[in-house]
């Protein structure tokens, strides 16, 4: 089963998003206990410079970020379906199209705003943040052409959604907004660009309201992922600029799961609550989920692999975890 994803390199390319985060740890070892560094700014200046250089290309749907554009519907589908499955208010009869309506959603490392725009169109009160000011400029400029997203347009209000961009890091945002500010926090293709993923996850998780959702997507640290995302996409086919990915920064699904087995949000009393993933073996469906994403070159589209398809999680994958209600 390991062989099948090798078909993917044919047209491979995806994109990253400029991230935020600290320091010095270049190994994605999430189980080590780091700590005081958590509160520090976590932005990697090299990564910011890299994506600032590419920022004008964000909305070229057939250029540098083509793969990311095509990945977007799959990310949205995952978010929609997961929220739908865990819709608390069973009487509300919410349809899939409405599941994000009115929700406060944060998109960390929004890049050109690919995901943020989609979230806003689905009715979410969206805040997109990025550590690169040129990304934020492009994202704002792009959205300003769209009367549906432009807050100054009279057409706004037909739907409940809104879209705001802010040039900041997740740590600064946490300091500014305080913990538990968002129903949903998304950070797509960002984790593999940060130096201290543990600190980054910590900040993101703190921003999630009780029983809120955290959605992540990143790349697993496997030889397969190296072959596809770095060797094929950057070196051989040169579909993605060199230096976009750093193998050592890739994060495995098990490492994310491990992080949330120990991560506890403070309960209202101030005492540490229960861990986000408490089930002893496999996370319960209501706690967390990992889903592989596979690019099908002959269709030119990404597909969301079924649950428990381990081979598909060897490269690009989505991860969802929910903060317990306490």
């Amino acid at each position: 089963m390991r062989i099948r994803p090798l078909i993917r390199p044919l047209q491979f390319r995806f994109g990253p998003v400029a991230g935020c985060i600290p320091g010095t740890v270049s190994r994605a070892n999430l189980s080590t206990t780091i700590d005081p560094a958590l509160a520090q700014s976590t932005i990697n200046q090299d990564e910011i410079a890299h994506f600032s250089k590419l920022s004008a290309l964000w909305w070229d749907e057939r250029g540098e970020f083509q793969m990311l554009h095509r990945m977007n519907p799959v990310r949205m589908k995952f978010i929609r379906e997961k929220m739908m499955a865990l819709e608390d208010d069973l009487d509300a009869l919410v349809t899939e199209a409405e599941v994000l309506q009115g929700r406060a959603v944060l998109d960390v490392g929004c890049g050109g705003g690919l995901l943020s725009e989609s979230l806003a169109r689905m009715g979410a009160k969206t805040l997109g943040i990025d550590a690169s000011s040129s990304n934020i400029s492009i994202a704002s400029l792009h959205a300003s052409a769209d009367p549906f997203l432009d807050s100054s347009s009279s057409k706004q209000g037909k739907r409940k959604g809104s879209l705001t961009y802010k040039h900041t890091s997740v740590e600064d945002l946490l300091a500014e907004y305080g913990p538990a500010s968002f129903d949903v926090v998304c950070s797509m293709e960002v984790l593999e660009h940060v130096d201290n993923p543990r600190g980054f996850l910590h900040s993101c998780a703190q921003l999630v309201k009780p029983s809120g959702h955290l959605f992540l997507s990143t790349i697993a640290r496997t030889p397969l992922a190296y072959l596809i995302t770095i060797f094929a996409a950057e070196d051989v086919m040169q579909r993605v600029s060199k230096g976009t990915h750093t193998y050592s920064k890739y994060v495995n699904p098990g490492e994310l799961e491990g992080f949330f087995r120990t991560y506890r949000s403070p309960a209202p009393s101030g005492a540490p609550g229960r861990p986000w993933i408490a089930s002893p073996r496999r996370p319960a469906r209501t706690e967390a989920e990992t889903r592989g994403m596979v690019y099908v070159p002959w269709n030119g589209e990404w597909v969301l692999a079924p649950r428990e398809t381990t081979w598909a999680e060897g490269c690009n994958y989505l991860f969802w975890v929910r903060r317990p209600l306490e």
Binding site: E61, H69, R70, K77, L100, S118, A120, R121, M122, N299
Partner: peptide
């Protein structure tokens, strides 16, 4: 495309039609 919050005028949103 609407179900995924897509911009219905975008190239990516229209790909499935062409395909």
């Amino acid at each position: 495309a609407l179900l995924s919050g897509g911009d219905v005028g975008s190239y990516t949103s229209l790909l499935p039609y062409a395909r």
